[in-house]
């Protein structure tokens, strides 16, 4: 069994009109099956409102399924007994860098999770140091979060999660509010965690270039899984991605266009180097 597994997961919420009467139900997540293995780097793609964030919030027991089941490390998230276990093992980073930092000083914020878990003082310090070093923010440990850039704030948030020693980290559009530099910083930190520390990563995004290094990707649309496979397999289907309000990196699109014009190229080229190699130049 994988670290996160879902079977026919459904999440519905009630829409109400201005008087508070029930207008109908919306299925934000619709019969999703999922199996994430320990150490995987999985990307979840989808346009705004495709249900990807709602799905992510189930992995940390912030939301509970209306139907179906989701297990984190084999534990059913609806079982209250496991709630804190699940939250500790599946850490979560959110979109807005300002709205998830609790501490007034970087190191105090990173210590917040371990404090809640009841970790002894001395060990909290060790965890804070090691987590901040892992994301390259150690020298900012005495700074106020307000003075950091967006990318730095997100790295602090990631450190705050890894200080809880999770097995898995779920990032819900961590780069949506950042500039290109900040995005690169965050993605680099996430990849390093996955590769060096073996932490399972679930990255939710709509920036296509961020998923190139993922082991696997799923594309969500209207609450269900519309596509899944390796990034290469996903990027091979340019037309389908466009239908799903997404796009592909320019190089993929160019290769696709060249292929349509009769040049012999495989599908799903992801980088410039790959294109040159395939053209045998």
């Amino acid at each position: 069994m994988g670290i996160i597994e879902a079977k026919k997961l459904v999440f519905e919420y009630i829409r109400r009109d201005e008087e508070g009467n029930v207008e109908g139900f919306t299925r934000a997540v619709d019969e999703v099956d999922l199996d994430v293995k320990q150490g995987d780097f999985m990307a979840i793609l989808g346009h705004n409102g495709s249900g990807k964030s709602t799905l992510a919030k189930h992995m940390n027991a912030i939301l509970y399924p209306t139907e179906g089941t989701i297990w984190v490390e084999g534990k059913d998230t609806t079982n209250e007994e496991y709630l804190w276990d699940i939250r500790q093992n599946a850490g979560m980073v959110f979109q807005n860098p300002d709205n998830q930092i609790i501490g007034q000083v970087v190191e105090e914020d990173v210590g917040f999770g371990p404090e809640n878990m009841g970790v002894p003082t001395k060990e909290i310090w060790e965890r804070v140091e090691e987590s901040l070093k892992a994301v390259g923010m150690y020298k900012y440990r005495k700074h106020s979060p307000n003075k950091l850039s967006g990318g730095q704030k997100q790295r602090v948030s990631i450190a705050g999660v890894i200080a809880m020693h999770p097995k898995c980290i779920i990032l819900d559009e961590p780069t949506a509010m950042l500039d290109p530099n900040g995005r690169k910083e965050v993605i680099r930190a996430v990849r390093a965690l996955n590769q060096a520390e073996g932490i399972t990563v679930i990255l939710i995004t709509h920036y296509m270039e961020e998923i190139i290094h993922a082991d696997r990707a799923i594309v969500m649309d209207k609450g269900h899984i519309a596509m899944q496979g390796t990034p290469k397999e996903i990027f091979s289907q340019v037309e389908k991605l466009k239908e799903l309000r997404l796009d592909v990196p320019q190089v993929t699109l160019l290769a696709y266009e060249l292929k349509k014009s009769g040049i012999n190229l495989p599908d799903g080229i992801l980088t410039c180097e790959e294109l040159m190699k395939e053209l045998k130049l």
Partner: peptide
């Protein structure tokens, strides 16, 4: 276009 999906951006 900050925060919009690719289609929304276009």
């Amino acid at each position: 276009t900050a925060g919009l999906d690719p289609k929304g951006r276009d």
